[in-house]
Amino acid sequence: MKKIKTEKGFDFIVTIILTLFSFITLVPLLYIVVNSISNPELVYQGEIFLIPKGITWEAYERVFMDDEIIRGYANTIFYTLLGTVLSMVLTFTAAYPLSRKDLVGSRFLTLLFTITMFVNGGLIPTYLVVEKLHMTNTIWGFIIPGCLSVWNVIVVKTYMQSTIPLEIQEAAMIDGSSDMKLFLRIIIPLCKPIIAVMVLFYAVGYWNSYFNALIYITDESLYPLQMVLRKILISADMSNMMSSAGGAMESIAQQSMLSESLKYATIVLASAPILFLYPFAQKYFEKGVMIGSVKG
């Protein structure tokens, strides 16, 4: 009898702690969404916490009129699509041969890949190479450096080795299909779950990255969204958003009042696409992280 009671008590405490944890995790995100749709004046006065007041889309309208943000958004969508395709092709074409234990030199080749996880040239030597290839101030400067993650190659390689045993592949080889056909017609279709994980990882990576843009891109018309965000959120430079607001002159006081709301609306617009997407891929990426942890 006593035991059942303590069991219940234990479950109760676990539930409380986890509910609290979930709440703390969600509050900052909720706070931003609620403030982004509330009356800017109340937001500025710090009146809004988790219940919106005086709902208005004013901040969003402003953000949508900002040509810098729109351009950043368009750039990021383009970079993310192109970059993800490139990364996926590189990752899977690398992972499959490395997964074949019957390939002469596969151990050495795998070593060539893994070394780069622990040793690298560092910032300046990499910069000099990128510059020499004339990739600075082009979209390639943003996409190419780091477009292949060796860690991901090893995850995919491990996945292939554990789910598609060589024996099955040998059966196909006896049928006379070439390695290339085998890769395209049998391996790739069987890799769907890991493809989903990798697309998510790479796409999120491109969407959220700013480092390459900071180092290699100085032409603002090529800036991805994160660089525009950096200017708005961290340097607190909202001159563009203020001046593009339909030409209406506003006092400094009005502008600073609006600035908080604009920041929140910008954050929502920049993060929403990914936050809406990831729950759909959740069951896959848990698997992906797992395979990664079992190591190659």
Partner: peptide
Amino acid sequence: SRQLYLLLLPSLIYLGVMCYAPMYG
């Protein structure tokens, strides 16, 4: 296995240019 080596080529070029060349640097 030449087709397998061919598949590896793009990523090896990438590693050579973006990882090993900077190491020389």
